[in-house]
Structure formats: structure tokens, C-alpha cells
Simulated assay, not measured.
Amino acid sequence: MNDAEIVRRVLDGDVNAYALLVDAHSAQIMGIAARHVPPDRAAEVAHDTFVRAFERLATYKGESPFVHWLTRIALRRCADFWRGRARSRETPFSALGTGAREWIESIPDSAAEDVDAHAERNEAGVILDWALAQLTPDDRQVLVMTHMDGQALNDVAELMGWSLSKVKVRSHRARRKLRDVLGRMLD
């Protein structure tokens, strides 16, 4: 049975059939959530995605694959997560772990050293997560999708519901904003 048939069954009153859709797509939605929100919150966002999809199932028109429709909902839920975080966005530099602060402070002194060796350290991931959290949810998502996940611009445009030119512009601006955030940290 394909996704469209399952959706039709759910809408016809067989709500238990929705579990088939959850089973079929939970790994992909969890993967999306894990790339766009902190790992300890990914399961919650994935769950919220399936709840929202169930609530909105009647709006699925079948014009695109169900998984694309579900992915758009997952991306919106990820953006909602960061919007909620943005209300209390101020994360003081002192809130970073000692290792992360030491790594940031060592960058100017180690300019001659191999920067890639520093990037491999765990603290670099913490710093990147912190810096990404300083961006707007849309900027964070487009940056993660285009540059970290390596998704094609056309795919990102379709998933975000944007034009290709908007994806290109937002991606460029998001990179510049991330550079500015990281630059301010070093000042």
C-alpha cells in the first residue's frame, strides 16, 4: 500500500493506519530533526512533526510525494523550535564550556597552526551549534541544508517552498551572518 492510499484510509476513519506512515517515515524525519535542532530535542521535534501532520492530513493534496509534504512540516517544526529559543536567545560567552572558550581564545595565537586540527575537536561543534543558534530559524535551516547537508539548491527550494533565487540569496546571506557572529566572538 502506498502513502496516498494510507492517507485516504486515515481520512476515511481508520486512524490506526496512520501508524504505517509513522513507521515508514520516522527515520527520515528523525534525521531531519537531528540535523536542525540540538540532538537531545530531535525526538521531540520529530514527534511534533507527526502530530502536526496528523492534524493537517486533510490538507495533503497528493500533488507531491507524501514524504515531501511531511518534510516541509518537519522543517517548519524545526524553525518553530528555534523561534521559541530566539525569545531567550542571549547565550553568554561564559555559558560555553571551558574547552570551547579556550579553543576560541587560542585561535588568534594559533593562526600559523593547522586550523583543520582545531576544527576536529569536539569544542568546534559546540561553537558551531552556538553560532548557528544566533541566526534566524530560516537562515539556520537554509545554511544547514545547503552547506552542511550538501542538498541541491533545487531540492532545498522545493522543501522550503521558496524560489531558487531566494534559496541562493538566503544561503549567501546566512553564510555572511554566520561569519559575522563568529567574528564578533573572536573580537
Rank of each mutant, 00 (worst) to 15 (best):
D48E: 12
E5A: 15
T71F: 10
G84E: 09
R89H: 11
L11R: 05
G97Q: 02
N2Q: 14
V144K: 05
E102A: 14
S106T: 11
S64Y: 08
R76E: 07
D139T: 09
R87V: 14
A24N: 11
H47I: 01
D114P: 08
R77G: 01
A133P: 07
Y60G: 02
G84D: 13
A46Y: 00
L57A: 05
V45E: 02
E44P: 03
L128A: 07
D3P: 06
G97W: 02
R8H: 15
E105C: 06
A112K: 14
S26F: 10
R89F: 12
A131N: 03
H36D: 04
M30T: 09
D3N: 11
L135V: 02
D40I: 05
E5N: 12
P108N: 14
D116F: 11
M148R: 12
P39Y: 04
D23I: 14
R35D: 07
F93W: 15
P92D: 13
G84N: 13
R121V: 03
R101N: 01
G13A: 09
E63D: 13
A24V: 09
P137H: 10
R56T: 06
M148C: 13
C78N: 12
A17Y: 04
G62P: 03
V142T: 08
C78R: 06
T49E: 00
S64W: 02
F81P: 03
D139N: 07
W69V: 00
L70D: 02
L21Y: 04
A34Y: 08
W130L: 07
A19C: 06
S64Q: 15
A95N: 06
A34W: 04
W69G: 00
D48M: 03
D48A: 06
W82L: 08
R72T: 00
K61H: 08
R87C: 09
L75R: 03
F54G: 12
D114N: 15
D23R: 15
Q141N: 15
L21V: 04
E123I: 00
R77H: 05
T71R: 07
R9V: 03
L20N: 11
R41I: 03
V115D: 13
V126S: 03
A58E: 11
S110N: 13
T98I: 04
P39H: 15
R87Q: 15
R52K: 12
Q28H: 09
H68L: 12
I6E: 05
W69Y: 07
D14C: 06
V115L: 15
M145R: 03
N2M: 15
A117N: 13
S106G: 12
A17V: 09
S88F: 11
T136W: 10
L143F: 14
A27P: 13
H25I: 02
I32G: 00
I73C: 01
V37G: 02
L21E: 02
S64K: 14
V115M: 14
A79F: 01
S110Y: 10
R9N: 05
L132D: 02
Y60N: 02
G125W: 04
K61Y: 06
H68F: 08
S106V: 12
A53D: 00
I127R: 02
R76S: 11
E102H: 08
D48K: 01
W82V: 05
T59P: 04
E55C: 08
V7W: 01
E123A: 04
A86L: 10
S106D: 14
E123W: 01
V126L: 10
P65D: 03
R101A: 01
W103C: 04
V126T: 07
